[in-house]
Amino acid sequence: MNKPLNKMAVQATINGESKAFLCSPGQVLAEVLRDELELIGTKIGCNTGDCGACSVLVDDRLVCSCLVLAAEVEGKSVLTVEGVANGGELHPVQQKLLEHGGLQCGICTPGVVIAAKALLEHNPYPTEEQARYWLAGNLCRCTGYDKIIRAVLDAAKTMRGGAA
């Protein structure tokens, strides 16, 4: 069990790389990602888990990083939007969001990329309704979600190898 410290040392795998960072006991993961690890792709829209802009995967689980204490990820694996593309190759969700114009201002996009990636890993054959419900926690004020949902369904199709 951890000893009480004002700053805690945490080791975690961030986007595939082993990282160590210091955090306060009450500091949330979103803040540490942005301020300590300079992963500014994770956005903070509300800080109360209501907008989804700070979505990341912790051990492949989709979460709001504003509602995870940084100390909780000790020994775990964190994936942020910066780690989604494989080198220069975009993930199909990223590629399809670009092709469909599934972003306007783009502030929700990192969260949408992460959440949609998680959806397609969880369910390769999402219906429109399933995609809409899975992404209900990712608020977008610009697009009306239309092109986001189309992009996600198209990405699913691509990932299935073009099958319907």
Binding site: I44, V81, E82, L90, Q94, G106, T109
Partner: peptide, 23 residues
């Protein structure tokens, strides 16, 4: 026509810098 927007890549990969992203 509908080409991919020039700023799109930065926005889907998290590199785009918004108001709170500069220190």
């Amino acid at each position: 026509s509908r080409p991919i927007r020039p700023d799109g890549l930065d926005k889907v990969t998290g590199r785009a810098r918004y108001g709170a992203d500069l220190n």
